[in-house]
Nucleic acid binder design. Structure first.
Length: 608
DNA sequence: AACTATTGTCATTGA
DNA sequence: CCTCAATGACAATAG
């Protein structure tokens, strides 16, 4: 009986728990949510995955960098003829930017890698050569460039990409294979190379490979691998002296130099000649912007951005590379020159439209207290053509490219030039959102993007209305200070409305975050409570079962005692009492009586 | 394409 | 009555 009860009660408990669970589930909570350990594990897993992913990306980028560096070197010098000047300046100049702009490198890396791939397929022996050479050169190039990040990886990576997969991590290899597998990229690359060959007859064309359209890649690869060795020292010395224009020219020339030629002088000449028409300009352009940037130190100005639209005719790589390389500068310029110059008609508009389009729908809501919905504000500001428009463009561009940037490093140049163009803007945006230009363009937290986007939008609005304080101030200032600030500055109605909206939104955003955090904390608290309750329940159950066993034992002992006592009882004649006829009973006072059972039966019978 | 998670925003409510 | 924080609900977006 007791056991039954116990089981029943425990069953009831379980039912209760299930009911509670069901309620929670109805409320949208899952059991996993309450499982603290589970969530912790998940968290750990996510973090690990993140780290791995980052590592992988890092490796990829570094590899690309290494390839790029090699490429530069190759471009600078012919295969066998070390042409050092152009190549060295690039690394040094680029160094600061390199960290920032991976996309450009990626693009180059892709092409180079592709070349390598082709080479590997067609010329295994040469590959081996390249590998060894590249391995040797890579470290040198690293040293020269002074790029810390590149130095460790490139030596291992570049060889791996060329011919020794063992050195390559499987992940990286896979990534590269994926990139290489892109048909667009290959096509583009081949076309470019062909164009180059056709338009410009290399002096070295003597080699059969040059004439063969398929070979260019191979040659390029070769040059990349070989140049660094010979050219590096020379490059070092020459770098500083080279002016950007010269550098550019050199870059242009570098590509042709790819073709294996014994005559260095000829190569150089050709290179300069090629500048104008060569599709491979992309490579040079990539580097050139960096140099310019370094020199001008962030004075790129809108020109760079506007130049982008013009770029399309040039090599596909050009626009992307430019942007990627000079995100900071562009951004700064944008900020500084509240650029009336940049009309809505700019290429960015199309991209910009997308974000805007979303907002108009919101405008319908008409939440704005003064009739300014967010969207309305935005549109007004954007259309106004004042400084705001420029920013709007910038930001709009940023949104979409952001995601693409990391995802399609290689494919973008060939497949989607427009997106690539947008990418650079993105980079610009990030620093802007930070509120400082200094922000590293490359830090692209996805989570950050969103907040940045939002902030940027509010910031944008604020700027368009020429509100004299920062969004941060508007949101975070204490009420008194805020009111004081508002009273100090004579703001018109729309400005006031916007400021209030910004403050409200900002506050509410924080409140929502707090609210959610609290919610989560509550859930966690409930979870821990639940755990403790479960523990308590288990404890009580075990205690109960223990008590049951104890009780059983006591009953058993009592029964044996009873039998023992009863068996020792004797009547007057010394006979033992029959258990069926008598029983021992204890009175309330504690005295024990021997009671004949007949009575009982009698009684019971009487009762009947 | 459907689903989920995250985040921002708006409307409402109570202090 | 106003302000503010909290919160539910919705939408946009990314994964």
């Amino acid at each position: 009986m007791m056991e039954m009860e116990a089981i029943q009660s425990s069953q009831q408990d379980m039912d209760l728990i299930d009911i509670l669970w069901n309620q929670d589930i109805d409320l949208g909570a899952r059991r996993e949510v309450f499982d603290y350990n589970h969530r912790q594990k998940e968290h750990e897993l996510q973090r690990q995955q993140k780290l791995e992913e980052e590592k992988r990306l890092h490796l990829l980028r570094e590899q690309e960098k290494a390839l790029l560096s090699q490429l530069q070197l190759d471009e600078e010098t012919g295969e066998y003829i070390p042409r050092t000047q152009p190549s060295i300046p690039l690394p040094s100049a680029v160094t600061p930017l390199e960290n920032v702009s991976f996309t450009e490198e990626t693009g180059d890396g892709m092409s180079l890698d592709e070349c390598l791939q082709l080479l590997a397929e067609t010329f295994p022996v040469e590959d081996a050569e390249n590998t060894s050479v590249s391995a040797v050169t890579a470290p040198v190039s690293m040293h020269v460039s002074g790029n810390i990040m590149m130095s460790p990886e490139p030596p291992a990576l570049s060889p791996a990409s060329l011919s020794s997969p063992q050195q390559m991590s499987s992940e990286v290899e896979q990534a590269w294979m994926e990139i290489l597998s892109l048909p667009e990229l290959q096509q583009c690359l081949n076309m470019q190379m062909e164009d180059t060959l056709e338009t410009t007859t290399y002096p070295l064309s003597n080699s059969p490979e040059v004439q063969n359209p398929n070979y260019p890649d191979h040659q390029l690869l070769q040059t990349a691998s070989f140049y660094p060795l010979t050219s590096l020292p020379e490059v070092k010395t020459n770098i500083l002296n080279v002016s950007p224009a010269e550098f550019m020219n050199a870059c242009d020339g570098s590509v042709p130099s790819v073709a294996p030629s014994d005559h260095l002088s000829q190569m150089k000449v050709d290179a300069t000649q090629l500048n104008g028409n060569f599709g491979a300009e992309g490579f040079c352009d990539i580097f050139y912007p960096n140099a310019v940037l370094e020199e001008s130190s962030g004075h790129h100005s809108l020109d760079g951005g506007e130049s982008i639209p013009d770029a399309p005719n040039k090599a596909t790589f050009t626009p992307m590379d430019l942007y990627s390389i000079s995100p900071e500068d562009e951004f700064e310029t944008g900020k500084n020159n509240v650029a009336p110059d940049i009309p809505d008609s700019d290429s960015g508009i199309s991209t910009y439209s997308s974000p805007n389009s979303s907002s108009p729908s919101k405008s319908v809501n008409g939440s704005g207290s003064y009739g300014f919905s967010d969207s309305d504000m935005e549109e007004m500001e954007y259309n106004s053509g004042s400084g705001g428009s420029f920013y709007s463009e910038m930001f709009s561009l940023n949104f979409q490219p952001d995601d693409l940037d990391p995802a399609l490093p290689g494919s973008s140049p060939a497949g989607e030039p427009q997106q690539l163009e947008e990418e650079p803007n993105q980079h610009k945006v990030d620093p802007a959102e930070d509120g400082g230009h200094s922000g590293a363009p490359f830090t692209k937290d996805k989570s950050k993007k969103r907040s940045d986007l939002r902030l940027s939008r509010d910031e944008l609005r604020a700027r368009s209305l020429k509100i004299p304080f920062t969004v941060d101030m508007i949101i975070n200032l204490p009420v008194d200070d805020f009111n004081e600030l508002m009273s100090k500055h004579q703001l018109n109605e729309p400005q006031l409305a916007l400021v209030r909206d910004i403050r409200r939104r900002g506050k509410n955003k924080v409140a929502a975050q707090n609210c959610r955090k609290r919610k989560m904390d509550n859930i966690v608290g409930l979870e821990t409570d639940l755990d403790s309750l479960k523990d308590e329940k288990d404890r009580l159950l075990s205690e109960k079962s223990k008590n049951m066993t104890d009780l059983k034992e006591m009953k058993r002992q009592l029964h044996s005692l009873y039998l023992e006592v009863f068996g020792k009882l004797r009547d007057e004649k010394g006979n033992s009492y029959s258990p069926s006829e008598y029983s021992l009973q204890q009175s309330t006072e504690g005295s024990v009586f021997l009671v004949p059972r007949i009575k009982k039966t009698f009684k019971s019978e009487d009762g009947h």
